[in-house]
Amino acid sequence: MTNVPTVLSEWESKKLLGSALPTPREALTTSVEEAVALATSIGRPVVAKASSVAHKSDAGLVRIGLSPDELQQCWSQLAEAGDGTVLVAERLHGELELIIGGSRDTSFGPLITVGLGGVAAEVFDDVAVLLSPPEPGELDAALRRLRSAALLEGFRGTPAVDRTALTHIVGLVAQRLDQDPDVMEIDCNPVLVCEGRLVVLDALVVKR
């Protein structure tokens, strides 16, 4: 009996985590016209991502800082590389990228992972792991043990990471693990910190 894990698309993953998940202003577009209309209404440069493609960034299928015209030019290429749709999102800038994840251990069951995200996640390997759901105080204690704890407290004038928002996202991940035994892995990465606020830029859910 072989169970091939199912990797949900970014859009499906975010939907599964629920509408309370803080995301950029974004939508899955099914036509170039729809995409251009969205980009125009956002009124600022956008990000366009191919859908249902693993490692889409490495594959060059994430385009950043597009104007509506530029989006029009690359939309079809991105759509064809993926499942025929393109995720168009407002482009955001922030001071820090975090990872908030969930997984299952054969002995300890559901786990939460929180730490430095984005490229830094791989370079610095600075994450804390907690039993899910975390009990009161455990998340704060784990964050204090991170090497980059000072960055999260607010560093050289940047505001501190919004702990309530962080706890909220951790709660959503924990709830998914708790309620859906088929969910094996959840990655919210990167979770962008902009002026202390948190926005989940990308998400990935693996089901068995």
Partner: peptide, 11 residues
């Protein structure tokens, strides 16, 4: 098991 799962449990 993985070292970090044990750390989490031990904590």
């Amino acid at each position: 098991g993985t070292a970090r799962a044990y750390e989490a449990g031990f904590t």
